[in-house]
Simulated scan of single mutants.
Amino acid sequence: ADTSRTAALLAARLGVPVVPAHASAATPTVPDAVRALTARGHRRIALASCFTAPGRFATQCAAAAPWIASAPLGTHPSMARLLLHRYDETLMTDGALKRRALATS
């Protein structure tokens, strides 16, 4: 569901068709998605990677892109900011829950 939602958001932002695809167990796979877009007449097919780090799946998917592929997200400063934000949110939520538990004990 998240992959489909992300694909829809990217399609709306870019104004081009985006087919959600998966690197491993789920379908369609990246090669399947590339074939589907090629069958619809698209030739400049780019891969928008959602991998957080380089590795086997990121490499395989990038190799399946007939035109260009984005780099994994892990080194982008926005990822670091997002991780820190989520960490801070968790601390605040856990802290609030603990204070509430102490107040009711």
Score class of each variant (00 low, 15 high):
residue 43 R to F: 03
residue 24 S to R: 09
residue 21 A to V: 02
residue 102 L to N: 08
residue 60 Q to V: 09
residue 24 S to I: 04
residue 5 R to T: 08
residue 33 A to D: 04
residue 99 R to P: 02
residue 73 L to Q: 09
residue 19 V to W: 00
residue 59 T to N: 08
residue 63 A to Y: 03
residue 27 T to E: 10
residue 18 V to A: 06
residue 70 S to N: 09
residue 41 G to W: 01
residue 92 M to Y: 04
residue 28 P to A: 03
residue 25 A to D: 08
residue 20 P to V: 02
residue 26 A to Y: 07
residue 21 A to E: 01
residue 64 A to Y: 05
residue 66 P to Y: 03
residue 74 G to M: 13
residue 48 A to F: 11
residue 51 F to E: 15
residue 75 T to L: 11
residue 51 F to H: 15
residue 4 S to T: 14
residue 6 T to N: 09
residue 31 P to C: 07
residue 34 V to N: 02
residue 15 G to W: 08
residue 29 T to R: 06
residue 22 H to Y: 08
residue 34 V to K: 00
residue 79 M to E: 04
residue 75 T to K: 11
residue 88 D to E: 14
residue 42 H to N: 08
residue 84 L to C: 09
residue 60 Q to Y: 09
residue 1 A to Q: 14
residue 32 D to A: 10
residue 2 D to W: 02
residue 35 R to Q: 11
residue 96 A to S: 13
residue 41 G to F: 04
residue 44 R to Q: 12
residue 3 T to Y: 00
residue 39 A to N: 09
residue 50 C to L: 13
residue 45 I to E: 00
residue 6 T to L: 14
residue 1 A to H: 12
residue 103 A to Y: 03
residue 60 Q to T: 10
residue 102 L to W: 10
residue 71 A to F: 12
residue 41 G to K: 03
residue 72 P to N: 07
residue 99 R to S: 06
residue 30 V to N: 00
residue 97 L to I: 15
residue 88 D to M: 10
residue 73 L to W: 11
residue 70 S to F: 07
residue 85 H to C: 11
residue 38 T to M: 06
residue 23 A to L: 00
residue 59 T to I: 07
residue 80 A to N: 10
residue 31 P to S: 04
residue 57 F to C: 04
residue 72 P to I: 00
residue 44 R to P: 05
residue 39 A to D: 14
residue 90 T to M: 12
residue 68 I to K: 13
residue 69 A to N: 06
residue 90 T to E: 14
residue 1 A to Y: 11
residue 3 T to L: 14
residue 50 C to A: 12
residue 14 L to A: 07
